[in-house]
Design a protein around this nucleic acid. Structure first.
Length: 236
DNA sequence: CCAGACGTTGTT
DNA sequence: GTCTGG
DNA sequence: CCAGACGTTGTT
DNA sequence: GTCTGG
């Protein structure tokens, strides 16, 4: 899962939490969607300090001749990172943190689908486990592409959805970010469901469905309108 | 051996 | 239904 | 993730 | 590049 999220906190806070040398200048974003450029923390080259870059959400493996829209890799299953040709090398050598302070999940089936916002109860930002690739071809200004790792739901998420983004505990950030760390068997257990007690979830307006809508009120709690009265003579 | 895919999600 | 675009 | 398009030819 | 399928 995880096809939409938020990053609204000021760059100064992000620099402090994620250990960046400089505070990035980032406008608050309430509806970050696939194909958009997203903030990612990396260590490039190996040995360099942490830095923040904008990467296009939708990983394109290096052997791919040209970006194929039909194969947009926005998520990568934690369970199979080592087996999938599209992700294996990135898992070994190109891991990143993707800062967020909320993410959306849709609950229910087709007609009744409703968006929920999940965030930390203390409001702090957190880090999705991410993978990245250098750009293929020469797209001007493209630094790289990335995907968000997904894992099983925690107890908060289970009623909403059967997957959730892998959120790395802060003590694990260094191990995940170090490009020289090839202990993949030690990295895999970091991709477990985040502790449910640290997070809250509430329904939000279906306006979030449209990736073009990015207003702050998207993250306010939302009371759905009462169901329409069934017409007389029709039981459903 | 070569050819062709290489992914996740949700939905049926 | 399926693909593309944000 | 959801929303919205989904096509070609010839003519202006 | 590397894996799967024939």
């Amino acid at each position: 899962m995880c096809g939409r999220y938020t990053l609204t906190l000021p760059g100064e806070i992000l620099a402090e939490v994620f250990g960046l040398d400089e505070a990035p200048e980032l406008a608050p974003r309430y509806n970050i969607a696939p194909t958009q450029d997203v903030a990612a923390v990396r260590r490039v080259p190996a040995g360099a300090p942490r830095s923040l870059s904008m990467l296009r959400w939708g990983l394109v493996p290096q052997w791919q001749r040209e970006p194929r829209g039909s194969t947009l890799l926005i998520n990568a299953r934690a369970e199979s990172l080592q087996d999938k040709p599209a992700f294996r090398e990135a898992f070994e050598r190109r891991r990143c943190l993707i800062p967020a302070d909320g993410f959306y999940e849709w609950k229910g089936a087709s007609r009744n689908r409703e968006p929920w916002l999940i965030k930390r109860d203390d409001g702090r930002p957190f880090a999705f486990a991410g993978l990245w690739e250098p750009p293929v071809g020469r797209e001007p200004g493209l630094v790289g592409t990335c995907a968000i790792v997904t894992t099983d739901p925690n107890e908060l998420m289970r009623p909403i959805h059967d997957r959730m983004p892998a959120i790395l505990a802060e003590p694990d950030w260094n191990a995940w970010l170090d490009p020289d760390n090839r202990r993949l068997s030690a990295l895999r257990p970091l991709l477990k469901p985040a502790p449910a007690e640290d997070y809250v979830a509430f329904p939000v307006s279906p306006a979030v469905n449209n990736a073009g809508v990015e207003t702050p009120d998207l993250i306010l709690p939302y009371t759905p309108p009462p169901p329409r009265q069934p017409r007389l003579g029709f039981d459903s």
